[in-house]
Amino acid sequence: MISVTINGERRQLEAPLNCTELLARLDLAGKRVALERNGEIVPRSQFAVERLAEGDRLEIVVAVGGG
């Protein structure tokens, strides 16, 4: 198990897991999202190879209505 912060919320996750697996676990597979890990963008092409680590801070964002 690792402890990570996703969108400001702490979560325990079964490790190892990469970003693709994380999104699947969060029911976000196939959704148009962008991911930031510890302040750095994770390109979509890297989702399957980038592994999460203990203490990671993740932001997962979408486009919403705004002016």
Binding site: E59, V61, G67
Partner: peptide, 20 residues
């Protein structure tokens, strides 16, 4: 058209439509 960028609502119904 302008859009805002926000944290996704984790745990919401995955079938909910998106703005895009």
């Amino acid at each position: 058209v302008t859009v805002a960028i926000r944290r996704t609502n984790i745990g919401q119904d995955p079938k909910q439509p998106s703005l895009l």
